[in-house]
Design a protein around this nucleic acid. Structure first.
Length: 357
DNA sequence: TAGGCCATCTGGTCCT
DNA sequence: AGGACCAGATGGCCTA
């Protein structure tokens, strides 16, 4: 059974596909590689367990044709002493059908694994474009999704209002609905660069951006790769730095125009650089790939967030005076009605005009 | 040790 | 029949 299973051309693609997927991860760090290898080992061991069960149950049947119907003793082996079930009579489970069913199950398991791996890989990509990314201490899946939602929310609100948010409001928005540890983490990450955040000097970047408007480049991926000296673990005594964490603001200001943008580890922009005065900044490295343009496209057509309102308040641990929940500065994000009445038309008209010129 | 997170298996459902 | 998707169950790993 086992040999038949893996010599079956219909099964091999799944196994090979998974192996190829695991090998594709060689470029990643060793941890991920090890995890992949472990996963592959687990997968093979698991499937082998299933196969070995089949093998033991059907020892001596290797020469049997899969399509052969055995009306003799089939059913007796598989039913065992289980009580008979009521309901419609099921088709007799012949040995061949049992075999096919198990093969189907193994194939389905392989597909499910690859599906989940794809999902996880997409989640990893998402981790790289939200603030506060670390390879060594990843955000959990649920926290990544929550943070991403808040991030989109915050950016869209900045876009809509054209106002410069204060750090506290920004962090509060990002941390809505996050667990306390993640809240502390994000807050810590962003607070590290509060001075940068509040400094408009670095926003000007050679006159490209007006000093009167709040400009923000989002390069979390650069930060994610820890290519900036600001983001190197150990380059700062802060515990978050030592964990490899770095906020979007590190790259936002500290890394702008630096050679690190061309780091070979950089896989390419996953989100468009953004200037929050209502225009997208075209200052981005790499080629203007369709992916990038797609990103702009999505941004332009963003039409609001689901009506769900983040639940729960947060007790941010950083010591800003305005960090208390519910306290907003004049320029703060209007959380309380963020999703209620968006006057987006002027902003998006401007964006459309910008991109269709 | 409890709890959180995760990967995997599994059976069900829906669709092609 | 088979694939995609989903949710529940399970066991492993890690951390407070």
């Amino acid at each position: 059974m086992l040999t038949r299973l893996f010599s079956d051309p219909s099964l091999l693609p799944d196994v090979q596909k998974y192996s190829a997927w695991a090998e594709d991860s060689d470029g990643e760090d060793q941890n991920i590689k090890d995890e992949d290898q472990d996963a592959q080992d687990d997968m093979e061991a698991s499937d082998l367990r299933g196969s070995s069960r089949t093998h033991s149950e059907h020892a001596g049947d290797d020469d049997e044709d899969d399509d052969a119907e055995e009306d003799g003793e089939d059913g007796e082996d598989t039913e065992g002493d289980r009580p008979k079930k009521r309901g419609p009579k099921k088709r007799k489970m012949t040995q061949a059908r049992i075999e096919r069913s198990k093969v189907r199950r193994i194939k389905a398991n392989a597909r499910e694994r690859t599906r989940m791996h794809d999902l996880n890989s997409a989640l990893d990509n998402l981790r790289k474009v939200v603030p506060c990314y670390s390879k060594t201490q990843k955000l959990s899946k649920i926290e990544t999704l929550r943070l991403a939602k808040n991030y989109i929310w915050a950016l869209s609100e900045i876009l809509r209002s054209g106002k410069r948010p204060d750090l506290v409001s920004y962090v509060q928005t990002l941390c809505k609905g996050l667990s306390q540890p993640t809240t502390n983490l994000v807050a810590g990450c962003l607070q590290l660069n509060s001075r940068n955040f509040l400094t408009e000097q670095q926003c000007q970047d050679g006159g490209r951006y007006s000093s009167g408007s709040f400009s923000m480049h989002s390069y979390p991926y650069q930060c994610a790769r820890l290519s900036s000296p600001h983001c190197q673990p150990g380059s700062n005594s802060h515990p978050l730095r030592t964990h490899g964490y770095c906020s979007a603001y590190d790259s936002l200001y500290g890394g702008s125009g630096s050679p690190e943008y061309n780091s070979p580890e950089y896989e390419g922009p996953l989100s468009p650089p953004l200037c929050i005065n209502g225009n997208f900044s075209l200052k981005h490295q790499g080629s203007g790939s369709p992916e990038n343009e797609k990103g702009y496209h999505y941004s332009m057509h963003y039409s609001g967030l689901p009506g769900s309102r983040p639940a729960g308040s947060h007790n941010l641990v950083f010591g800003s005076s305005g960090a208390r929940s519910g306290i907003h500065s004049e320029n703060g994000l209007p959380y309380h009605d963020m999703h209620l009445h968006h006057e987006r038309a002027p902003v998006y008209d401007e964006l459309n005009a910008f991109f269709h010129n």
